[in-house]
């Protein structure tokens, strides 16, 4: 069984906090920060490790601030018991 694991890099100084990526993320990985960037916007941060690297956040992002990486991992199958 393969498992996709993703990582996103967010250019927080260019983020305008429109929240469209938060809505687009199927894994609820993104949320708005408590602090603001130099333009005065709350920016998007990654809040958990559920990211699968699907890229939805980057595709919907109007300002192209998100870079997405994805690695497919081979996970050994759990052993089946024959009993």
């Amino acid at each position: 069984m393969a498992k996709a694991i993703g990582e996103i890099l967010i250019n927080i100084e260019r983020c305008k906090g429109c929240e469209l990526c938060i809505l687009a993320c199927p894994e609820s990985t993104l949320a708005l920060s408590k602090t603001i960037n130099h333009k005065g916007y709350q920016y998007v941060v990654k809040v958990n490790d559920n990211c699968t690297g699907c890229g939805n956040c980057a595709i919907i992002c109007p300002d192209a601030v998100i870079t997405v990486y994805r690695k497919i991992l081979k996970v050994p199958k759990p052993e089946m018991s024959n009993s």
Binding site: I5, G6, G55, A58, I66, V68, Y69
Partner: peptide
Amino acid sequence: LDVIVEDIVKPENLVYR
């Protein structure tokens, strides 16, 4: 899975930029 971020953030794993 014991994966660290540096393992994922590599040019060959790039999905979107």
